[in-house]
Design a binder for these strands. Sequence first.
RNA 1: GACUUGCGA
Length: 299
Amino acid sequence: MITGTALIRMYCNCSTLENAHSLFTTLSEKDAMSWAILISAYVQHDNGHEAVALFEHMQQEGMMPNNYIYNKLINACAAVPNLDEGQRAHSRIVGTEFERCIFVNNALVDMYAKCGSLDLAHKIFMSMMKKDLVSWNAIITAFTQYGLADEVFKQYEKLKADGFKPDEYTFSCMLSICTSLGDINMGRYIHGEVRNAGLGCRLPVVNALLDMYSKCGCLEEAHKLFNSMGARNDVSWTTMIAGCVRERRDAQVLKHFSCIPRRDVFSWTALIQGYVQYGHHDEALDFFLKMQGEGVRPN
RNA sequence: GACUUGCGA
């Protein structure tokens, strides 16, 4: 038997959101999960506004939200980002059984940080009786977003003192803060921690290492690491291209660009940026057109 | 069976 939720899921994956949405409106019984899947799809497509609107529509139809749906709503507010909407979402949860839900609170920490209120994010984090690794990662990410390196390192130590093991999310964040500080020594220290944790092969971590080395003036080390990678993704390639552009290594820029298996808008933009930086506006324009010729839409 | 945190221009 094919259920409504399975159909919605399939349409979200294989068709357009519009088709999924119109199929959704024809479902005779819409359960919480089908609402959650559709709201989630809008968030993934960077349409937080529509996701919030769907939530309102859901309430009008008398559907009671559960913690999954609240998380999706909070997520949508973070994606917009819209602090008012986020606070409204938060106040809807206060007084419900979900107020103490760790997943919901983790989402709130993230949402407040992304909506510009580090203060509220921190308040939520502090108020949590029980924290998991995601809670710690969310607050570390928040401090990273605001460039508060001292706090980032402080929370990193506290997380470990609390008995948690930093994971690949933690390490990507730690590396980001080293990158923005330009602190190669701290970066190397974190790299050591990554190795000790056995996470030296996780793509987001290696990519963050590539970025850290190349932006801290160690492009050669970034290259060595890049060459040793067993698997690479779009981020790995673009990180290297951007690094070579910054160091004006024209030949390497082009070599890397020609090797990318699949070029996305970020890799194209890194290349075009290189030409703009060198003052070669005609080539920049050529590549801009070529990009569209290959079906990549400018953003 | 659906939910929260991380990497590139």
